[in-house]
Design a protein around this nucleic acid. Sequence first.
DNA 1: TCAAATCTGGTACTGTGTCTCATGTTTGGA
DNA 2: TCCAAACATGAGACACAGTACCAGATTTGA
Lengths: 182, 182
Amino acid sequence: MRAEVAAIAGDLMLERGYERTTVEDICAAAEISRSTFFRYFPSKEDALFGLTLDAGEDLREALVARPDSETPWTAMRRALDPLIEKYEADDERVRLLTRLVVTTPALLARHQEKNARWHELLRAEVSRRLGADPDDRADPRVDALVGASLACVHAALTAWTTGERPGVKLSVILDRAMDAIA
Amino acid sequence: MRAEVAAIAGDLMLERGYERTTVEDICAAAEISRSTFFRYFPSKEDALFGLTLDAGEDLREALVARPDSETPWTAMRRALDPLIEKYEADDERVRLLTRLVVTTPALLARHQEKNARWHELLRAEVSRRLGADPDDRADPRVDALVGASLACVHAALTAWTTGERPGVKLSVILDRAMDAIA
DNA sequence: TCAAATCTGGTACTGTGTCTCATGTTTGGA
DNA sequence: TCCAAACATGAGACACAGTACCAGATTTGA
């Protein structure tokens, strides 16, 4: 049911844009009340993000699984592989939705808020790999490393979604992005 | 006048937090109407950001002024010097306001929206330095480089504002952040 | 079959942001 | 000095997101 409403919301937003789709529009199309909508989703943005399951914990586990011999940067890149593969495996609709997110300021803001949660999840492991004090808030290296990695993901997603239809593979784009820095 | 309202807004938000300060509260304290408030500032968030002048164009010019012999990463780091100095020179109030921004999701989102504008301004010059096609949307290197730099700035600001009062200099923190990556 | 738990819809409310219209208030000539 | 155009301000209505509370329906399990 939740998934069904999310699908309808996605359709409407792809068709008319995010701002020009009101919650009432979605409710009318899904034949539910406003009350029920907000019982399903804490906010209008989440009607979109609800589809893509939260991969933060998977990402953390993938990072932990990387050998210590890898630099933090390389380990991050490899830990991202499963996530990237998931994007590549998904159908065109996911790519269009991702583009909508990347190009709509309000959605992008919420997306980065989600990324901030990933960021938190990854801090401990990156900190360990750097041999840093996890509680030392004056050490910016952990946040810099994680933030820069996620910035590369964002750059790659932007390039991937705004480019031509049969474009370069996302994994290759991400390689280019991350190699350009470290 | 605008600056005065912004100062009052800052006071209230520092005292009671961002969400718990309504536009009406600010209007009452500043003795203006809601209409006038929204004529001064396009949104509640901007009552805070209105204080700090937009340094995006300065940043771009500073980057252009760096010699071509520097790598893009180094050039970015050096171009950030004037901005960093400005932060360090400002009084304690600016540091508290910055902390408020960094720790309040809604404000952070808007702040990153501003950064996205900086990002756009810097694209052309970074693209030139990389010898990339500025219109090639499939090349993620430019966005990755700029995004990662700004992520480092964010990491540094977070460390700087949440740390102890007579902490490490911001420029040193930023060095640590950017050196940790490239 | 009954009763508790859950799902749903309705209504009223707060808060941000937009819009329009009616007052002032300033400014710059004649 | 007076008039008029430009401008700033305030008031009110509105759209929309999100919250809180309550009442009725539906399901679930003993």
